[in-house]
Computed example of a mutant assay.
Amino acid sequence: MSQHRPTGPNGRPGGVPALPDLPEATVARLPEYLRALHHIAETGNDTISSEGLAAAAGVNSAKLRKDLSHLGSYGTRGVGYDVALLIDQIEFTLGLDQRRAVALVGVGNLGHALAGYAGFASRGFRIAALFDADQARVGEPINGLDVRHISELAEVAAAESIAIGVIATPAAAAQDVADALVAAGVTSILNFAPCVLSVPEGVDVRKVDLAIELQILSFHEHRKSALTSLPGGLAEEAVGT
């Protein structure tokens, strides 16, 4: 089967397709495919094989082909995937064709770095507003935006049509911030605070905890050290070679 552009109700290519009901694991991998595809496009390649794209994204090719089949993309035998078309399909599925407005709450060291991250704009997001509870930070210019007081959140969220909020506050303040975001109509939250948030049904939360990621890596380091210390382990094998 060849790759095709989804058709809309009028049957014309490029019409608005129905969004597929994707497995969560597939959704989690689509941004990796998109990152790889943009890099491939920048190198001047118009097509890419499933094996080449899988290698660039760090997954196996069978898993990639299954993921992309959910989007109606099957590639062309002997040719591969049309890079530009696949970028369009993934961006549509992820909703990145709408350039979503984002509110960032908490402009300490982490929040300040996030506010200045240029990668958001190139991936379909616009930091529309910055907030903090510290009056000393209110009015501070960061990357073209002035920090606002958290009390202005509801008004600004409505004016900027903000649906995504990023929490970069200390853990003690995160739940109050989440409550304020939800009250302002924000339905998706990216939480950098090291805590679990309680939100109503219909509000999606993604948690980014760098300490947890480091602890997981620590486990792998600990496991490798234990394996090398066992009789017949890697350390002994190295000595015996």
Rank of each mutant, 00 (worst) to 15 (best):
126 R>E: 08
126 R>F: 00
126 R>V: 08
126 R>S: 08
127 I>P: 04
127 I>S: 04
128 A>D: 06
128 A>S: 15
128 A>H: 11
128 A>L: 13
128 A>N: 13
128 A>W: 07
129 A>V: 06
129 A>T: 03
129 A>S: 06
130 L>N: 09
130 L>K: 02
130 L>D: 09
131 F>Q: 07
131 F>Y: 05
132 D>I: 02
132 D>F: 00
132 D>C: 02
133 A>W: 01
133 A>V: 07
134 D>V: 11
134 D>L: 06
134 D>Y: 06
135 Q>N: 05
136 A>D: 11
136 A>C: 02
136 A>G: 10
136 A>V: 13
137 R>Q: 14
137 R>H: 09
137 R>A: 11
137 R>T: 11
137 R>I: 02
137 R>W: 07
138 V>F: 00
138 V>Y: 00
139 G>V: 04
140 E>I: 10
140 E>K: 13
140 E>L: 14
141 P>D: 05
141 P>N: 07
141 P>Q: 10
141 P>T: 13
142 I>C: 12
142 I>T: 15
142 I>D: 14
142 I>H: 13
143 N>V: 05
143 N>Y: 02
143 N>R: 11
143 N>P: 01
144 G>S: 03
144 G>V: 00
144 G>F: 02
145 L>T: 06
145 L>M: 10
146 D>Y: 02
146 D>M: 08
146 D>T: 12
147 V>K: 03
147 V>D: 15
147 V>Y: 01
148 R>A: 15
149 H>P: 12
149 H>Q: 14
150 I>F: 09
150 I>G: 08
150 I>N: 07
150 I>C: 06
150 I>T: 14
152 E>F: 00
152 E>V: 01
152 E>G: 10
153 L>Y: 09
153 L>R: 03
153 L>I: 13
154 A>Y: 10
154 A>G: 06
154 A>P: 07
154 A>C: 09
155 E>Y: 06
155 E>C: 04
156 V>N: 01
156 V>P: 03
156 V>K: 04
156 V>W: 02
156 V>A: 07
156 V>G: 06
157 A>D: 04
157 A>E: 05
157 A>M: 04
157 A>F: 11
157 A>V: 13
157 A>W: 08
158 A>Y: 05
158 A>E: 13
158 A>M: 07
159 A>Q: 05
160 E>N: 10
161 S>Y: 04
162 I>A: 14
162 I>C: 14
162 I>V: 15
163 A>T: 15
163 A>I: 03
164 I>G: 07
164 I>Q: 04
165 G>S: 10
165 G>F: 07
165 G>D: 07
166 V>R: 00
166 V>P: 01
